[in-house]
Structure formats: structure tokens, C-alpha cells
Design a protein around this nucleic acid. Structure first.
Length: 638
RNA sequence: GCCGGGAUAGCUCAGUCGGUAGAGCGACUGAUUCGUAAUCAGUAGGUCGGAGGUUCGAUUCCUCUUCCCGGCACCA
């Protein structure tokens, strides 16, 4: 019985025996066969070397297609597995998937892998690729697989099959030379097709099946691409990320430092704190325009309030506490219970709603030591937090208004690529299912009203309500979660917040927890990396340095600084007895956006010669004109 | 928190197969007054992360500990 293969262009070919996609490609052109990585048979990814036994639509996937890249990476993981087992006998394999930029494989081995091992392993991988071993698909029974892996000392693999896969399931195994792994596939026809564009990048720990209670494995990471050019681009991106690292730039630019005696907390230096305040003031202006009121609430609050709110039960481990005269006080990890206390002062009417209560709330959370990371993950931080107390009917319009505000703020900071994630009920939560149905429904309606696209993030909501998470993409393509909006029916109930409705009855308000930047510390970390420390003028800690060429110009330099400051600029004089080259270099390295050079000529003519960061050309202007022009440039967004 | 690696001058780093350390930059002092990314010379600066142990002697070897880095887990 002939088999009919339909091509994307509608052409049909028939074959007497089940053909492989590779046969078919070869029949069309050897070039195509070389380019093809996998096939799509009736839309399903399929090995090129797997016979097609029924009539089907066939599409050949070429090397540079996204699906192809995943297959290449997955194959590289298999080759990594083989290389490690060839070199280090007694090492067990576990899982080895493709990742966003490459692949990893988790191994069980008593001895740690070293950086030197990595080089050896990588060399062996190239060797296995050169051997060009065919990757052969085999269908095994459950029992056969358990027996095989048990007999070969692969206890993790055997356990996984026994506990994780139904006993009647058919399993597939991919064999390459002497080595094989349980795998769904698909794979390349042979290891040679992986090419040379891969590299092992790091070793690290990982837990068996992602659970911290399980055995600790060793994960070897690699990156892999379709060709060397793509690999090199990626490696350059990594270098670029390293160059921008805020942990290096922060102290270098004299913005902040961290030290052992205050782990996870930031010492802001004058320049860093200037940046911090500039951001805070900008947000304050935006909030004021958007109808928020600002408050400040206590840092130390009796545990009884946290017990009532539910935080004590769920987050006690991560809260810092202090003792005082028989009381246990907790350093606030969040601001919401405190805001409810302000809400509850006096009687609120439905006419008072929505009430938008903002705070630059200084919070402390005892984060696990291993999670701390520069400014990105700290124990003491300040949120641009607010709680909107509103009627259920106001959730929609408030969400729309908030999203507008958030996107506009992000744009002002130079981020325009933002996406939204919707996180629904977590396993451990407060409030009954009906309340969650209501909250999730309300938030879904609200996000629909904004017209923004979003993706689901199941089970990642806060314990008191579902949330939207706003993720921005930075200049080198990394994603950062900053903003959030959470719908909460639980805390108003627990903390007994109420308002008087139109009919005189007492009702619970809804609380929307929301933040735009999230944590100021973290956001500044992101900004430093976004701009590699060269901030836009309005954020620059020092906006202009007036640098003298000769000491005769010192007095004039001071006069110029005064004029610039009077125009609202953050200006400094550099009258040190150094050559102008030296000063230019130093302030350029400190990423000052404008250097105003003054020598005898400028002093006589009352002008300044401006030089912009990274540019060579000069511009001589009257001092007053320069001050006015620079002040305009450095004006913060409204 | 867990696995692995690391910590030497303000910074970047070298070094000591166990005999208490060195460079460049920076700082300081002096000279130089110079036109757009490093002027020259001199001087000072280190309980070699902390505690304990082995040793005649430890920055070096061992144990514990703190912090940092990579990874995982966690992230209200």
C-alpha cells in the first residue's frame, strides 16, 4: 500500500515503502537534506530518520528555525551526558533538557566537577560530534527500561521511570553509539549535525527533581546555537552583561556600597542617594497627579497585627523581630496592614472611595543568604507601594488607570518593552475558594479592560489574592519583574476594614496592592545595568563638571558652577592642578554627561566649552545660554 | 538554606613547595599652569577575612567561622 506525503506547497508524492523524512529530503536535493534538522509530520516534530508509516503532511525544519535550535540543544545535552559518562565512570545521569540559550545536564557524582573538568568534557563532546554517531530511536516497555537502568546503576533514572511514568506507557530511548538515554525526542539523525557552535559555561548545584529536600546533583550548563556567529553574539552579550554589572559599577561610580556588617542592606553614598531621591521625587509627582495621598507608617509593629493579617502564620520565618517589655515586635515586611490601620481611623463613606494610599515603605525581609544579590535582592528595601481601597465596581477603572501610569513611568525611564503575567491562586492561601473565584474574575475582567496582552502564571499569586506582574525588558534583552497589581478581598476582612455604603450598611472595601518600580533598590540596580552607569541627564548624580585648564580660570569656574546650580543643575567644579586630558578622562569614566571646560578664553569671554560624554566635538556657548540649555535638557519628565 | 569555588594595599592582581609579602593604578608630598580620555619625581600604605590547631616558626597545612561569587531552592 503506497504512502502519500503532502508537502507545504500542496504537492503530493507517493512511496511504496515507509520513507524517512531524510530519504524524502535527499530525493529533493542533497542541500536540503543537509539543511534539515527535524521534520514536522502532521504538525508533530519527528526524527528525520524515523520512518513515516502512514499518509501525512510533511514539513522539513531547517537549521535556523526555532524548533530546530531546541533539537540541536537537546542533542548537545545528550552528547554532554555521554562525554561525562565516558570520562567519569560511576557518574549517574538524571535529566538533560534544552534551555533558552542552550542546555544542561544534571549528574549524580560524589566528586565535584571542576572548571578544568569542564574543558575536558567539552573537548570530549567535540570528539563525539566528530564521530557522527547515528541517533537511533527505540521503543521500550516500562519494565525493560526500569531493568536496564537499574542494571546499569542508574538509580535516579530507574526511580523516575518507576515513580513518574505509567507502567503501561511505551517509552522511547535514543541510542548514540554505546550510550543511550530515555527521551521523548525528537533528535538529529546523527551527532555530527550538532555542529561546533556550543560551549560549556558553568557547573553548579541543583536538586533532584527541583526539590530542596532531595539529593543535591551537579548541573553542567552549556550554550548552543545553529552556527558559530550566533554563539559568538551570545558570548558577547554575556560580556556586555558583565561590563554593566551594577555590583561593579555601583561602587566604581561611588553610588553605594555593601559591607559584611549589614548584609543585604545598602549604604547609599551621596551620588547614589541623589539618584535615589530623584527617582523618589519623580514617582511622588506622578502619584500626586494620579490622585494618591502619601503616608508613612511604623517600621516596628506588634506581632499581634501580623497574626491578624496572616503574615505571621505564613512568613514568620522571613520576618525580623525585636523584643520590648514583654512584646514581640516585627520589622514590617510589607506596608499593607499599616495602611489598613490608617484607613480604619474614622468612618469611611463610599464617597471616600477609591482611596489611594501611597508610601515609600521601608521594608525588611529576612531573605535566605544564598538568594542575596547586589541591589537586586536585598533584605532592606523601599517599595513605591500603594493600596487602593475601592468598591468592587472600581477594580476595572482603577486597574486601567494603574496600567496607564505604570507604562508611562516605564517609558520615562527608557523601558518600552513590557509584558504582563497573570498569577492565580497559590496552593497555600488565605480566603475561601468563592472569594478567590471572585478576585480572579475581577482581575481578569480588569486586565481585559486595559487591552494589554498577558500570559498566565499559574499558582504564583500572593497568599491573599491574584496578581498581575509587569515585566520589563532591558537594553540587552533581559527581563525584570518590577511592577505588580494584586486584588485582595482577604485582608480587609481579616483586619476589619469597612465603609458605609449608599444604603447605610457597612461593607468591606476591596484592596488593590500595587507598585510600579517595586523596590527602589532593585530598580536602581536595573537602571544602572540598563544605562551601564551613563544615566540620562535628569538622573545623573552630577550633571555638569566645570573643569579648568589653568588655575587662572579657577574663580571663573566657581562662578560658572554657581550659575549652573542657580539654573537647577547638579554641577561641580574641578579646579585641581591637573591637565585637562586627565580631568576629561576621569569625569568620562565617572560617566558625567557634560564637561564644561574653562580656560583663559572662556574666563575672558564669559563662555564655557561643552563636551558631551562619549563625544569628541566641542561647543562654546555663553555661560547663561549654556546654563539655560543644559537645565532644559536635564529637566525630569513631568 | 543547600552544593561548589573564593577572600593578599583604597582598586586590579602577582607571590610564598612553611622562614611574617610585591607590581600597576589610586592616595599623599613636591615640581609642572598645560586646550579635550592618564605630566614627572618622591613618600606612605598590608595583624595576607576572623578564631582555633599542628609546628621552633603559619599568609601558606588542618578545623571551625564570616562574607563574597556561580548554581539550586526561596522570593508575600
Amino acid at each position: 500500500m503506497p504512502i502519500h506525503i503532502t508537502f507545504p506547497d500542496g504537492a503530493v508524492k507517493s512511496f511504496d515503502a515507509p520513507p524517512t523524512a531524510l530519504d524524502i529530503a535527499l530525493g529533493i536535493s542533497p542541500g536540503l537534506a543537509k539543511q534539515a534538522v527535524v521534520a514536522k509530520v502532521d504538525g508533530e516534530l519527528w526524527d528525520l530518520s524515523r520512518p513515516i508509516e502512514h499518509d501525512a503532511r510533511l514539513e522539513l525544519v531547517k537549521r535556523n528555525a526555532p524548533e530546530a535550535l531546541e533539537v540541536i540543544r537537546h542533542d548537545a545535552a545528550h552528547v554532554l551526558g555521554q562525554a561525562v559518562q565516558e570520562l567519569f565512570s560511576g557518574t549517574q545521569i538524571t535529566f538533560g533538557p534544552a534551555t533558552e540559550n542552550g542546555f544542561y545536564y544534571d549528574f549524580a557524582r560524589a566528586e565535584p566537577f571542576t572548571e578544568a573538568d569542564l574543558a575536558k568534557i567539552e573537548a570530549r563532546m567535540h570528539d563525539i560530534v566528530q564521530r557522527d554517531l547515528p541517533l537511533e530511536r527505540e521503543v521500550w516497555s516500562h519494565a525493560q527500561a526500569v531493568d536496564y537502568f537499574s542494571a546499569h546503576g542508574e538509580t535516579f533514572k530507574a526511580e523516575w521511570i518507576r515513580d513518574g511514568i505509567a507502567p503501561d506507557a511505551e517509552l522511547t530511548v535514543y541510542r548514540q553509539g554505546e550510550w543511550l538515554d530515555l527521551c521523548r525526542g525528537p533528535h538529529l539523525p546523527s551527532t555530527g549535525r550538532i555542529g561546533t557552535a556550543f560551549k560549556l559555561t558553568k557547573v553548579g548545584g541543583a536538586y533532584w527533581r527541583g526539590d530542596a529536600n532531595n539529593a543535591q546533583l551537579q548541573r553542567i550548563y552549556g550554550v548552543a546555537f545553529a552556527d558559530d556567529k550566533a554563539l559568538n553574539n551570545y558570548l558577547h552579550m554575556l560580556e556586555e552583561a558583565e561590563r554593566r554589572d551594577h555590583r561593579k559599577l555601583g561602587p566604581q561610580l561611588d553610588l553605594f556600597h555593601l559591607q559584611e556588617e549589614a548584609v543585604g542592606s545598602v549604604f547609599w553614598h551621596p551620588h547614589g542617594y541623589t539618584l535615589y531621591r530623584e527617582i523618589e521625587n519623580y514617582i511622588r509627582r506622578r502619584l500626586q497627579k494620579a490622585g494618591y495621598v502619601e503616608v508613612k507608617t511604623p517600621m516596628l509593629v506588634d506581632r499581634v497585627l501580623w497574626e491578624r493579617s496572616g503574615h505571621w502564620a505564613k512568613y514568620r520565618e522571613n520576618m525580623f523581630t525585636a523584643e520590648s517589655e514583654e512584646r514581640t515586635l516585627a520589622v514590617k515586611p510589607m506596608n499593607c496592614p499599616c495602611h489598613v490601620q490608617i484607613f480604619k481611623q474614622g468612618i469611611k463613606s463610599y464617597r471616600d472611595l477609591p482611596l489611594r494610599m501611597a508610601e515609600f515603605g521601608a521594608c525588611h525581609r529576612n531573605e535566605p543568604s544564598g538568594s542575596l544579590h547586589g541591589l537586586m535582592r536585598v533584605r532592606g528595601f523601599t517599595q513605591d507601594d500603594a493600596h487602593i481601597f475601592c468598591l468592587p465596581s472600581q477594580i476595572g477603572p482603577e486597574t486601567v488607570a494603574f496600567c496607564d501610569l505604570l507604562l508611562s513611568v516605564y517609558r520615562d525611564f527608557g523601558f518600552s518593552d513590557v509584558h504582563v503575567k497573570f498569577s492565580d491562586r497559590p496552593e497555600v492561601r488565605a480566603g475561601d475558594d468563592a472569594t478567590w473565584d471572585r478576585a480572579e474574575g475581577a482581575l481578569r475582567d480588569a486586565i481585559e479592560q486595559t487591552g494589554l496582552a498577558y500570559t498566565m502564571n499559574p499558582g504564583e499569586g500572593a497568599f491573599y489574592g491574584p496578581k498581575l506582574e509587569f515585566v520589563l525588558r532591558d537594553a540587552i534583552g533581559r527581563d525584570w519583574q518590577c511592577g505588580t497589581l494584586q486584588v485582595d478581598f482577604v485582608l480587609p476582612e481579616r483586619l476589619d476594614a469597612e465603609y458605609v455604603a449608599e444604603d447605610g450598611s457597612r461593607q468591606r472595601p476591596v484592596m488593590l496592592h500595587r507598585a510600579v518600580l517595586g523596590s527602589l533598590e532593585r530598580f536602581i540596580g536595573i537602571l544602572i545595568e540598563q544605562h551601564s552607569g551613563a544615566f540620562p541627564a535628569w538622573l545623573s548624580p552630577v550633571q555638569v563638571v566645570v573643569a579648568t585648564i589653568v588655575s587662572d580660570a579657577d574663580d571663573y569656574a566657581r562662578e560658572a558652577v554657581e550659575a549652573l546650580r542657580a539654573a537647577g543643575l547638579r554641577a561641580e567644579a574641578d579646579t585641581r592642578n591637573e591637565k585637562i586630558n586627565y580631568k576629561i578622562r576621569e569625569h568620562s569614566l565617572m560617566k558625567v554627561p557634560v564637561i564644561a571646560v574653562v580656560g583663559r578664553n572662556e574666563a575672558e569671554q564669559h563662555t564655557v566649552t561643552l563636551r558631551r560624554l562619549g563625544q569628541k566635538d566641542q561647543q562654546t556657548l555663553a555661560l547663561a545660554d549654556a546654563a539655560a540649555a543644559l537645565a532644559t535638557e536635564a529637566r525630569p519628565p513631568a
